[in-house]
Write a protein that binds this DNA or RNA. Structure first.
Lengths: 135, 135
DNA sequence: TTACATAGTGTTATATTATAACAAATTTTA
DNA sequence: TAAAATTTGTTATAATATAACACTATGTAA
């Protein structure tokens, strides 16, 4: 009975890459990931990007578009990345996923005047975090 | 009396690139721009990226982060890109800048529980536009 | 259990997006 | 007009991402 690639389980590469992102305190870039996992046998960009694509698709991680970097999902309410919001410090680069039910509901219910029905949104807030303000 | 680089005026390259983006009905990518303006003497990527950086900085254009592409600003309320929102069709790639005072106010007033004060936000909505729904 | 379909892997090469660094010209400010 | 700031032109290269192909592993269903 070998490893099974079922509903919620991750493949070997996906698991390696998810673990790395999940334990990171900051967003990771694809090539940073690549360099970090080369000792584990993941040697080429496509292996990383494929795992990243799948992890994004299944909502285990999110891409921070303004940084081309990836963070683990910390929000059970984002429903496979249909409603994502982040706060980003422009000084230390820290990224925090925002879990705010009101915000999420407000935006999920928002409808464009021009009649487009939205399936998904991504919101990125920028500022200086508490920590950096002190310095 | 030569050309003047005053407050609101654009330099030669900036103007050429702004005009191109401004008359485009869809977001333009940096290298698409580069190829389009080569006959006007703009031959290398840094010339394009520098103009783009400046135009973004002054709020004449916005970058659509999820597409690495640029659109002209259509919203006098976004105040030099401090409060940007877009609707993006996942089928035809059309991008529309959203000018919604309520939305803008709501988000500008939003404050993170963790005490971070936001200076700026960017919001991208995704869906299928009216036109594409019909097809 | 076999066979078929689907998903994942490994690999090489290449495409796409973006910046570094430096010399020269133009424009603004004082 | 001299100094400062901005813009330009240029070459080279860095960083991000995908195409294509051969192969292996897993899941599904007769």
């Amino acid at each position: 009975m070998g490893k099974m690639y079922k509903e919620n389980s991750l493949s070997k590469n996906q698991q390696i890459i998810f673990d790395l992102i999940n334990k990171s305190s900051e967003p990771l870039k694809a090539y940073t990931i690549l360099f970090s996992v080369q000792k584990k046998g993941i040697k080429a960009p496509p292996q990383v990007y494929r795992a990243l694509d799948k992890l994004v698709e299944t909502g285990k991680i999110h891409k921070i578009e303004s940084k081309n970097a990836f963070v683990a999902c910390r929000n059970s309410n984002c429903e496979i990345s249909k409603a994502t919001a982040f706060s980003i410090c422009e000084s230390c680069e820290m990224v925090d996923e925002i879990s705010d039910t009101k915000l999420s509901k407000y935006l999920s219910g928002f409808n464009h005047k021009k009649g487009m029905k939205f399936k998904r949104f991504n919101l990125e807030f920028f500022g200086i975090c508490k920590k950096c303000k002190k310095d």
